[in-house]
C-alpha cells in the first residue's frame, strides 16, 4: 500500500466558518449594519489536519453528528475551500455520492445520465455504449424517459449506484451513501459489482455511521470529534477508540 501513489493530500487543512447572528445578506442589512460592530462568531469546524490517501485505498471517516466529517469531504471535493495556509492536492476525477446526488428531478434518467457522464469527462459516444448497461443494472428499463421526480427513493438510489459503478471517476466520496441502496436482492447484486469493479481499483473515501460497513471494507479510518482529529489508523483500532469516545459523553 505504501508504494502506491498518493491521490489525496491535505496539508495543514482547517476550516473556520464565520456565523453571523444577524443575517446581513441583503443590501438593506448591509446599510443598517454599517455602524454596528460586526457580530460574527467564528466556529472552527475542522482543526488543522495533515492526511495522505493512496490510490486504491478504502478510507473511512467516522465521528458523531456535527463532528466535521462532511466538511472534510467537501474540502477534499474542492466544493469549499480550507482556511488560509491549507493545501489540498488531489489527482484524478472525483465524484461525490450522497442520497441527494447530482440529479435534476425535472430531467429524465436518460438526460441525467448524459449530464452526469459528460461532467465526469466521458464523451457522448462512450456514454452511448454504456447506457443500456447502466439502465439494465438499475432495473429502470421501463422508466428511461420518465422524469426522476416521479421516481421512488429506491429507484433514485439504484440509478445513482448504477451511474457510480459505470462512471470513470478515479476517486469516489461516499457521503452516507453506501449500504442504503435498494432491496435485499439489489443489495446483493450491487455488493457483487461493487467488489468486482471498484474495490481495489478506485480510491474510495466514505463517511458513514454504519460500523458494519466501515469494518467490512475500510483499510484505514480517521476518527473525528468536534472538528478535532482523534486519530488515523487501522480500522478496528479506530472503531474501538470511537466507541470509547461515545461512552465518555
Amino acid at each position: 500500500m505504501s508504494q502506491r501513489e498518493t491521490v489525496i493530500s491535505l496539508r495543514n487543512v482547517s476550516k473556520t466558518f464565520s456565523i453571523k447572528d444577524a443575517n446581513v445578506d441583503s443590501i438593506r442589512d448591509r446599510i443598517f449594519n454599517v455602524l454596528k460592530i460586526n457580530e460574527s462568531r467564528k466556529i472552527q469546524a475542522l482543526q488543522p489536519v495533515d492526511l495522505d490517501i493512496k490510490k486504491g485505498e478504502f478510507f473511512g471517516i467516522i465521528g458523531r453528528n456535527g463532528s466535521g466529517k462532511s466538511t472534510l469531504l467537501k474540502i477534499i471535493m474542492g466544493a469549499i475551500r480550507p482556511d488560509q495556509g491549507g493545501i489540498v492536492d488531489t489527482t484524478g476525477k472525483m465524484m461525490r455520492l450522497s442520497l441527494a446526488m447530482g440529479f435534476d428531478p425535472g430531467l429524465t434518467a436518460r438526460e441525467n445520465i448524459y449530464v452526469n457522464g459528460s461532467l465526469l469527462g466521458i464523451t457522448f459516444k462512450q456514454i452511448g455504449t454504456k447506457f443500456d448497461e447502466i439502465i439494465a443494472f438499475a432495473e429502470l428499463e421501463k422508466f428511461v424517459d420518465t422524469k426522476v421526480k416521479f421516481y421512488s427513493t429506491g429507484m433514485r438510489s439504484r440509478l445513482a449506484f448504477a451511474i457510480a459503478v459505470h462512471a470513470e471517476a478515479d476517486i469516489f466520496l461516499f457521503d452516507e451513501f453506501f449500504g442504503g441502496v435498494g432491496d435485499l436482492r439489489f443489495k446483493a447484486k450491487s455488493d457483487k459489482v461493487f467488489k468486482e469493479r471498484m474495490l481495489g481499483n478506485k480510491t474510495i473515501v466514505i463517511v458513514s455511521h454504519s460500523m458494519q460497513i466501515i469494518q467490512q471494507y475500510c483499510n484505514r479510518v480517521l476518527c473525528i470529534d468536534k472538528g478535532k482529529i482523534i486519530g488515523v489508523g487501522p480500522t478496528q483500532k479506530m472503531i474501538n477508540i470511537y466507541k470509547e469516545e461515545i461512552k465518555k459523553r
Binding site: 467537501k74 471535493m77 466544493a79 465524484m95 446526488m101 447530482g102 435534476d104 461532467l119
Partner: peptide, 9 residues
C-alpha cells in the same frame, strides 16, 4: 448546486 457539489468540473 446539485452538480457543483458532487462532481468536479
Amino acid at each position: 448546486r446539485y452538480l457543483i457539489e458532487n462532481i468536479q468540473f
